[in-house]
Simulated scan of single mutants.
Amino acid sequence: MSRAGQLLQVSSGWGGAGMVVGLVFLVLAWVLAPRVRHLADDRPVLFRADAPELFALVDEVARAVGTRSVHAIAVDGSINAGVMTYGVRGRRLLVLGMPLWEVLTPGERIALLGHELAPYANGDTRNGLAVGTAVRTLSLWHHTLGPLPHPSVIEMVVNALYVVPRLLVRGVLVLLVRLTSRAGMRAEYLADRLAARTASTQAAVGLMDRLLITEALGVLLRSEANRAALGGATSSREATAQADELWGLLTAYAASVPEHKYERQRRAGARRGHQVDATHPPTHLRRACLLVGEPVAAAVVPQARRTERIATELAAARTEVARRLPRDGLGD
């Protein structure tokens, strides 16, 4: 007998009130049950037929890292990237933040792909079925039990009743994150090493430097995206031209940052403990770790013609992302 059937059988023995309680439990179980990720339909998603050269590059990087490749690639406006699973069969989705992709060199892009695929090769527990599902489920519960904004009298009572369960969920979530943090930090260092072996030490270190200027890139991107939105492109040709101008300005800014400014950012990051997010070690320590020992050469070498073909495959997506930036923002 299923868990739902057992719950109904038990609650039916309590009379009518028990049935009501059982139904409430069933609704809560349905709302708070672990969810299988699905492909988001609010951003451009590419499959192999749409971008054969990009998928060929990802396949080559995956082989160099020692893991399987992805089944789909989503493009959004975040200054970030990541790989996650979706669907019942656990297929992999690569999420490419177009602003980050645009400012990287071809070698740094390969390092980025290597770093994002590496956790699946080095046994990062945070990407596992048990721990990953637990963290996502607890996060959903914590969000669901959050206080209702601008509550009425009844909603104030509900908010009060939610306080203790929410604190318990938060405590378990914090405990789980802390218990896995050391393994997670180690996995990030290993991912950096695999990225260096895939794209070269120089490319992996260059990627670290780019991460130091993401805040400035975000400010510039928001400003330019809003300015472009005020222009109000009326045709697809104008939208493409505005997107090209936007990404061109972003790329030109990243290329114009001199080495002494990167050095200043590295020193400031060392003082402040700059991190990409709470799950990553300090960026300056990651960079220093890469520079220990002899530099390694690239296992996957950028090819100029492939880079051009990939740019063509991403052209429609980069225009669409630029068009949506004023509305959607930079994402996570």
Rank of each mutant, 00 (worst) to 15 (best):
A270G: 04
V300Y: 02
A17C: 08
A74K: 02
L330M: 09
G16P: 07
L250Y: 03
G206D: 04
H38T: 15
L148G: 05
G66F: 03
Q242Y: 05
E245V: 09
L173N: 03
G16K: 08
R227M: 12
M19P: 00
A49E: 15
V20P: 00
M84N: 15
A196K: 02
G107A: 08
L94D: 00
R37L: 13
Y162Q: 14
L94T: 03
A270D: 07
L250E: 04
G82N: 11
R126M: 08
R89N: 13
T214A: 12
R37S: 15
R109A: 00
A243M: 03
A118F: 02
G107T: 05
Y86F: 15
V131H: 00
V135I: 15
P326E: 05
L175I: 08
A241S: 15
R197K: 11
R126D: 03
G331T: 03
G77R: 00
M185E: 12
G82W: 04
V205M: 04
G146D: 08
D50S: 10
N127K: 13
A315H: 14
V10D: 14
P151T: 04
S236I: 14
L250P: 00
V157A: 12
A254N: 04
R286H: 06
P44R: 06
W247S: 00
S78E: 07
E155W: 09
A298C: 06
L246E: 01
R89C: 09
L138G: 02
D244C: 12
V103G: 01
E294I: 02
M1P: 07
R35S: 11
R92M: 12
P149E: 06
V31A: 11
A317S: 15
L93D: 01
I79M: 12
V296H: 01
V276L: 15
T67E: 09
V10Y: 12
Y120Q: 12
L26V: 04
V36Y: 08
I110P: 00
L221F: 15
Y162P: 00
R197P: 00
V131S: 02
S12W: 13
T201G: 09
R63I: 12
L167E: 13
E245S: 14
L145K: 00
A255F: 03
H115F: 09
A191H: 00
T125Q: 10
L28C: 06
L249F: 07
R266F: 05
E263P: 02
G331Y: 01
T144M: 10
G171Y: 04
D328K: 10
L39K: 04
V296Y: 01
A199I: 02
A311H: 09
V292F: 10
R68D: 08
F55Y: 08
A191K: 00
L104I: 04
V21G: 03
V135A: 09
L57F: 05
Q6S: 09
A196L: 06
G132P: 04
L32C: 08
V177Q: 14
S223H: 13
Q265T: 07
L140Q: 11
R227W: 10
V257W: 03
T312P: 01
V103L: 09
R193E: 13
